[in-house]
């Protein structure tokens, strides 16, 4: 369990646009061990997806990894050639994207897309590849897989398409899977089916999964470790249960408090985080959260907080919470009112 499969340190991915440099990912560090599920949570634009696609260089032309190290099984992913990378993509590392309906090619049958993938990475005949594809479709719970091989993506429902995507992702026995909001486009009952399937497969094959989501409920259900991102930075990284019991960063507090909970009995006003996320072209000179943070002081406006390990496996980037906890959750907010 302790074998590290992916280690990312101080990753910086910038987008060079006409209107300036957007620091989409500006200092992200995490480690992923074999057989673990890492959850990445954050709001839209916080750099969750970009930090994942930086690992396999799936960035648009304007984006570039400018700093940091990405080690996948000890290999430096920033240095390897495109040829090597192509071998890794799809076989050792596979990706499940957010929208299943658009990530499958609409003009090819599901079966031929799967066969193509399998034959790219394995030396097998067409018939054998077909057999593997049918087996995988059956594994992800698609009824009548033989017949579904001849279906076009538009003939399948969203949940079915996502199952096909998962079947494709596992068909080359990857060591590491990136699931980029795999259930956001799906209904809750279908979401539960897909998540259950992912967890089951992960336990069976011992694959490491990076699960990107904005839904904390999914994190509680699925993940072993969690990274919270805000405006391109890792603000907190911890064991999932530790993060729930003992969150340290004010942004994590805000995130936890602003979600309406099903088990709430009284209808109190939600504790919203005031303001909006910062412009990514202007970040990087201070704590990115300072203008929304009720606990902010002068130092937050002047210095970028470092990501510090405050307890084994629990890292936090806040001037007031590194080492000695000086803030009390909810205290400042209460005196505000």
């Amino acid at each position: 369990m302790s074998e590290e499969i992916l280690k990312v340190e101080n990753l910086k991915t910038y987008f060079f646009t006409a209107s300036g440099v957007a620091k989409a990912v500006d200092g992200v560090s995490y480690t992923l061990k074999k057989g673990e599920i890492l959850g990445i949570v954050g709001e839209s634009g916080s750099g969750k997806s970009v930090s994942a696609s930086s690992v396999i260089r799936l960035l648009p032309k304007t984006g570039r990894v400018v700093d940091g190290t990405i080690l996948f099984e000890g290999k430096d992913m920033r240095k390897i050639s495109d040829k090597e990378l192509r071998k890794i993509r799809g076989s050792d590392i596979s990706v499940i994207f957010q929208d299943p309906m658009t990530s499958l090619d609409p003009v090819f049958k599901v079966g031929s897309q799967m066969v193509e993938l399998i034959r790219t990475h394995n030396k097998v005949s067409k018939e054998e590849a077909r057999k593997i594809a049918v087996e995988n479709l059956a594994l992800v719970g698609i009824p009548d897989p033989e017949r579904r091989m001849n279906a076009y993506p538009h003939e399948l429902s969203g949940g079915m398409c996502q199952r096909v995507m998962i079947a494709m992702a596992i068909s080359c026995h990857p060591k590491f899977m990136i699931a980029d909001e795999p259930t956001t486009a799906l209904d809750v009952t279908v979401q539960a089916q897909v998540l259950g399937l992912l967890k089951e497969l992960q336990e069976k094959t011992d694959t490491a999964i990076m699960l990107i989501t904005h839904n904390l409920g999914i994190v509680w259900k699925m993940c072993d470790t969690v990274m919270v991102m805000y405006a391109g930075k890792t603000v907190e990284f911890a064991d999932m249960k530790e993060l729930y019991k003992n969150p340290l960063h004010p942004y994590t507090w805000g995130l936890l408090d602003s979600i309406p909970k099903l088990s709430d009995t009284e209808k109190a006003e939600l504790k919203a985080i005031p303001g909006t996320p910062p412009d990514l072209r202007l970040t990087g000179k201070c704590c990115n959260f300072y203008n929304r943070c009720p606990y902010a002081t002068d130092i937050c406006r002047e210095q970028v907080p470092e990501l510090v390990e405050v307890a084994p496996g629990h890292k936090v980037a806040c001037h007031h919470q590194n080492g000695v906890e000086t803030l009390v959750r909810g205290k400042e907010a209460a005196s505000d009112e």
Partner: peptide, 23 residues
């Protein structure tokens, strides 16, 4: 089924699981 499909409020929560098959 809808209630049991909703992701939990906390990691320690257990709910009755009722699964609906199919779409």
């Amino acid at each position: 089924a809808l209630l049991s499909a909703i992701p939990p409020d906390s990691p320690f929560e257990t709910r009755e699981q009722i699964k609906l098959e199919g779409d």
